[in-house]
């Protein structure tokens, strides 16, 4: 990491084990209030340093993640990781958004390619993909450190002060593809990696080992499921994510518990126990900078997982 501009980057640089959360503006909605509330909840936990704001996830249009990041950061006081995908914008529009992010005081951008536009709710939209995620990293890095865009045009005024995150995929087969990709992203200036959801701790550990030589601080993504349906959804429908059979079996057993409160209690206990051990294992790795907890709408387990992992 060349420079640490954000709180997130400063903590990573200080060697602290960092937790990040995730916020998702609603599909095609002007409402952002409850997302701000969720950010406040994350902040109140005390150990969440920043939260990602998703950019048209699964190619369903939602409020601009730039505007949402600004509003949520301003109103909650929690630092945002502004997710920016290249699926919808060319390099000109991306540069505009990076400048705006700087003006809005956003200090982290997660550079993504994004799901194909055809997969969402506007399948006839023109897919842009003028740049890919590595090239977006290159663009941001140029603007921050060279003071130019990729055509050499100079940034006027103070340069943006932004740390650059990239997505990692520990589930990629063969893993060598992913390692070579991360080497490329490191070459163009990625500061940190946040991974796709991982359920199997061995996959996370193998991943961390395989990219250790690259030297990029890495956050492993976790998603404590609230139900068997959610766990099964990840296993079946989320690209590249597999859920260990034992994990699924346990959740299937919970599904059979008819008392709702009892079922929730069991699921919460299981998640806390499972992910405390998970986090304890991954944090032993030198290049593991922290854990990215994607538990939107499931605040009950976040604090206990962090508390447990910190003991």
């Amino acid at each position: 990491m060349q420079e640490a501009f954000s709180e997130l980057a400063k903590k990573i640089k200080a060697g602290e084990f960092v937790y990040t959360g995730e916020l998702e503006p609603h599909n095609l909605s002007t409402e952002i209030g409850d997302v701000v509330d969720w950010a406040k909840t994350l902040k109140s936990i005390g150990r969440i340093t920043a939260a990602n704001v998703t950019d048209n996830p699964q190619s369903f249009s939602a409020m601009s993640s730039l505007a949402a990041s600004f509003i949520i950061q301003r109103d909650s006081g929690l630092e945002m990781v502004y997710q920016l995908r290249t699926a919808d914008k060319n390099r000109l529009a991306l540069a505009s958004d990076i400048l705006a992010a700087a003006a809005f005081g956003l200090k982290n951008i997660l550079a993504l390619t994004g799901d194909h536009t055809h997969m969402g709710n506007t399948p006839d939209a023109k897919p842009v993909f003028d740049l890919d995620s590595a090239q977006l990293v290159d663009l941001i890095h140029h603007m921050v450190y060279e003071g130019t865009d990729l055509s050499g045009n100079e940034v006027q005024g103070p340069r943006p002060e932004i740390n650059i995150g990239v997505a990692g995929n520990p589930n990629q087969e063969p893993l060598e593809i992913e390692v070579l990709k991360m080497e490329r992203k490191a070459e163009v200036g990625a500061d940190f990696i946040q991974t796709q959801v991982v359920f199997d701790v061995d996959i996370a550990l193998t991943y961390l080992e395989s990219i250790e030589h690259i030297g990029i601080p890495t956050f492993i993504g976790i998603f404590p499921p609230r139900s068997y349906g959610q766990a099964e959804f990840f296993d079946k429908f989320v690209s590249g994510v597999t859920v260990p059979p034992e994990f699924l079996k346990t959740f299937k057993e919970f599904k059979a518990i008819s008392d709702k409160a009892e079922r929730k209690k069991k699921i919460d206990e299981f998640n806390i126990d499972y992910f405390v051990n998970f986090v304890k294992e991954i944090r032993k790795k030198k290049n593991c900078a922290g854990c990215h907890i994607m538990a939107v709408g499931y605040p009950d387990v976040i604090a206990p997982i962090i508390e447990g992992a910190e003991k």
Binding site: H116, I177, K181
Partner: peptide
């Protein structure tokens, strides 16, 4: 590549 990526693959490549 459906996205025309020059630095692929993306995370959507499964098996």
């Amino acid at each position: 590549c459906a996205k025309g990526l020059l630095n692929g693959p993306c995370g959507g490549c499964v098996e």
